[in-house]
Design a binder for these strands. Structure first.
Length: 408
RNA sequence: GCGUCGGUGGCAGAGUGGUCAAUUGCAAUUGGCUGUAAACCAAUCGCCUUCGGGCUCCGGAGGUUCGAAUCCUCCCCGGCGCA
């Protein structure tokens, strides 16, 4: 018996969209579902007790961050993430593979729509120069693993697939991910292929390490992550390889930011056709409404993304008509609710004028309310998608939604 | 009234003869954010512009100088001290 099971309740008759239930030892996740990002064992600005009213069924914490602080041993002594953060529901952990990318290849690169260029190596002032290694990155990859420089204190650390699995065992999430090498969609074919093959080798090692720990293997499910960038042949090869290894689920890997182009996600999704039909699929870092709709259409079951909490903290609010910047002058006396018609706990009590004021005066409640609203918006979106699939009207729902939602 | 210090762009506050339309912070205006290095980052922020530049500008008025936010004179205003 595996520690999770995935039951598909309904498949769309006109697309690969599906609705299901992912059963874990800490409860069920009704899919499609939005997974809140809880990097450091907290969803930024949100109390655990608020998850339910915001529609948050599950969250994903991060291996790299929790390993650095407070340390996975401490969390293990606390009885695992569930006890540590006081959440009884399903928890996922990410492997640290994304940090291989964001602290490695992606480090210091400010790819803007305007310049299209990467910043100079010393273009990032966030860190003490002494922290950065001579190559200008905080992570360097080799075939055996990755050497990190802590972004916190500059100390040196090393992750291997086995180490990532060990840490994630200590964290104790219900579902965790194999250590992978994430890449930018814009990377060359050669680079993409190399990272994919390395990811496959690491997946095999990760799985072996997991199977060796009988106790963890019985309690925790493990997803493998595929790569391949925007190259369809690599993507499909990666899906076939990862899909056949015996993982409990599948992670759609990559980084789908708009700065890498408008269809980096679209070009990756065809790989899902190569997977066993009943394998649960998680879209890593996929969370803009239009991308959730696209992913769901292609059979992605769960989505995690920083976007509701990060945008929320920085003043961006999701509405059915598109994103708005609540600190902007036009909302100073706007008495509409954040998103007219929204029934989230914030919209039920406050209007734009108030939240605008909170941002202008730098009150911490502003980012909190915005994060709450955004989380609700996305969990509500996935639950609406789920209902639509169950009624076999997904396409209509998508078209209706997109007809009023303005993408930027 | 006397003495003294000071009046700089929305605010605070640098600059004290040319490299100054004027450092910096805040405020303001806008943009960005996709497995969180992010309660963050970026651009703009006197007026005009064919984006090359042009014009006006550092309390006010004069003056010195090739050149003044910077030096001098007078005036106005403010802080402090003494009467």
């Amino acid at each position: 018996m595996r520690p999770i099971s995935f039951q598909i309740e309904k498949r769309s008759t006109v697309s690969l969209a599906r609705a299901g239930v992912l059963r874990t030892l800490h409860g069920d996740i009704k899919t499609p579902a939005f997974v809140a990002v809880g990097t450091k064992a907290d969803v930024k600005g949100i109390q655990t007790a608020q998850f339910s009213e915001l529609g948050v069924q599950t969250l994903i914490a991060n291996t790299y961050h929790l390993y650095l602080s407070p340390g996975s041993e401490l969390i293990e002594r606390a009885g695992g993430l569930h006890k540590f953060m006081g959440f009884d529901g399903p928890i996922m952990t990410d492997s640290g593979g994304f940090q291989v990318f964001s602290l490695g290849e992606g480090f210091g690169k400010k790819v803007s729509k305007f310049s299209g260029e990467q910043a100079p190596e010393d273009g990032v002032a966030v860190f003490d120069e002494d922290l950065a290694t001579s190559h200008g990155k905080l992570a360097i990859v080799d075939d055996d693993g990755v050497t990190f420089t802590s972004h916190i204190d500059g100390s040196l650390h090393r992750f291997t697939p086995e180490r990532s699995v060990e840490i994630q065992h200590q964290l104790g999430g219900d579902i965790f991910f194999a250590f992978d090498q994430c890449t930018a969609p814009t990377a060359t074919y050669e680079f993409q292929k190399e990272a994919m093959e390395r990811t496959h080798a690491w997946a095999k090692r990760s799985l072996a390490a997991h199977r060796q720990n009988i106790d963890a293997n019985n309690k925790q499910a493990m997803y493998g992550i595929a790569q391949g960038g925007q190259f369809d042949d690599l993507r499909r090869e990666s899906a076939r390889t990862i899909g056949a290894m015996g993982f409990d689920g599948f992670g759609l890997g990559g980084s789908f930011s708009k700065k890498y182009g408008d269809d980096s996600l679209q070009s990756a999704l065809h790989m899902l056709k190569e997977l066993p039909e009943s394998m649960p699929v998680h879209g890593l870092g996929v969370g803009e409404p239009e991308d959730i709709l696209l992913g769901a259409e292609h059979g992605v079951d769960t989505f995690d993304c920083v976007v509701p909490t990060r945008n929320g903290r920085t003043g961006g609010l999701y509405t059915k008509a598109g994103k708005i910047q609540i600190p902007n002058a036009e909302y100073r006396e706007d008495t509409q609710s954040l998103d007219p018609g929204c029934e989230c706990p914030v919209c039920l009590h406050h209007d734009r004028r108030y939240v605008h004021h909170l941002f202008r005066t730098h009150e911490m409640l502003g980012p909190i309310l915005a994060s709450m609203h955004n989380l609700y918006f996305l969990t509500h979106l996935t639950s609406q998608i789920r209902e639509a699939i169950l009624d076999d009207r997904f396409t209509q729902f998508r078209d209706t939604f997109l007809s009023v939602y303005k993408m930027r």
